[in-house]
């Protein structure tokens, strides 16, 4: 496993710098992603966790430069392999996207065109970026990809409706890695699938990543799923990243965490005990139109004090972790 120190010496694949995304609504701007900065290094798998509406998917779309409708990037930059993707022309973007970074969407069921064969859609991807590729070469590559995602090549001639959800998602993954990108964003790739299929897809993602090497930004609301795959995990709350941590630190009760991370971790049923204990986080997700003053988590936090509602905490480094909380060090009832 790579540590953060060795990774910092490499050039990052993805650099997100002070990224802020808003949705313009009739009631005012909703800030979906707030001043997010992070980098992703070659071959690194980073998890991004947050509850529904925390801005994870919006951020993924912003990194892909695929924001639609009312969503706008109002501040910050996204660099992939050192290139600011928001400075590319539409045609440059079309060529750059997918050859260097791609995304596996949440909707496995609907991501494939129902009226084209699976093979045609894989070949379409290849030919769109490599127009000089012959049909035969494209077909061969499609076969290779099939083998990589472990799909029987005879299914290449099938239409999406003839395949199961798991197979469709495998095809989507095959399309995502077709051009050997350096970065694949995976936005809850297993949400639409049942638990057994979910497991096999997760194993496969890990297996493929080890064979062909690319970085993954893995987005999920499922803590246990992410901690198995990712080395570094970012926790998002109300559009902000409130913590960067290592996946193994979560098991360690002594390591420092944001109160929200703690809450999420406690919300996972623990089967080790005779009694299954599930502890929820009190309250509900905040209204993004009117975020609480100071730390946005403070109304739900059991460690809150006066400073929490007065001052927004910054991300501070604690060893290899970064946490944005006023009370990281004096938790466990140490504050007065």
């Amino acid at each position: 496993m790579q540590t953060s120190e060795t990774m910092e010496r490499q050039t990052p694949i993805l650099e997100v710098d002070h990224l802020t995304v808003v949705y313009e609504t009739a009631k005012g701007d909703v800030i979906a992603v707030r001043d997010v900065s992070f980098s992703l290094y070659p071959n690194e798998i980073m998890g991004l966790i947050g509850e529904s509406g925390s801005g994870k998917s919006t951020m993924a779309y912003a990194i892909l430069r695929m924001l639609k409708g009312a969503a706008r990037v109002v501040h910050g930059t996204v660099r992939i392999l050192g290139k600011d993707i928001y400075l590319l022309s539409p045609e440059e973007l079309r060529k750059f996207r997918w050859s260097h970074f791609s995304m596996v969407f949440q909707s496995a069921m609907n991501a494939l065109n129902p009226v084209m064969t699976v093979e045609a859609q894989v070949i379409d991807t290849l030919k769109s970026h490599r127009p000089h590729l012959t049909r035969l070469e494209a077909k061969e590559r499609a076969l290779e990809l099939c083998e990589l995602v472990r799909i029987d090549p005879r299914y290449l001639k099938s239409y999406p409706h003839e395949l199961s959800g798991g197979m469709r998602q495998r095809i989507v993954i095959a399309i995502a890695i077709a051009l050997e990108p350096s970065l694949v964003i995976m936005d809850e790739p297993t949400t639409a699938l049942d638990v057994v299929v979910q497991r096999s897809i997760m194993d496969q993602i890990r297996d493929i990543q080890m064979r062909v090497h690319f970085s993954i930004l893995f987005i999920s609301h499922d803590f246990s799923l992410v901690s198995e795959l990712a080395t570094r995990i970012a926790i998002m709350y109300a559009g902000q990243i409130v913590e960067f941590t290592d996946s193994h630190s979560l098991e360690d009760r002594m390591s420092l965490h944001h109160p929200y991370t703690e809450g999420l971790w406690n919300a996972i049923p623990k089967l080790a005990n005779r009694n299954i204990v599930i502890e929820g986080i009190p309250g509900g997700p905040p209204n993004l139109l009117k975020l609480p003053e100071g730390c946005s988590f403070h109304p739900r936090c059991r460690y809150k004090s006066e400073i929490c509602s007065a001052q927004t905490p910054e991300l501070k480094t604690y060893g290899t972790y970064e946490i944005a909380c006023h009370h990281v060090l004096d938790k466990e009832g140490h504050h007065d």
Binding site: M66, N110, D124, S128
Partner: peptide, 20 residues
């Protein structure tokens, strides 16, 4: 539809996206 968004992301040309 998701498949149109996905096709746009994977970089098919505008013409192909529009018709196919």
């Amino acid at each position: 539809e998701d498949y149109v968004v996905f096709a746009e992301a994977k970089g098919v040309t505008q013409k192909r996206l529009k018709y196919m």
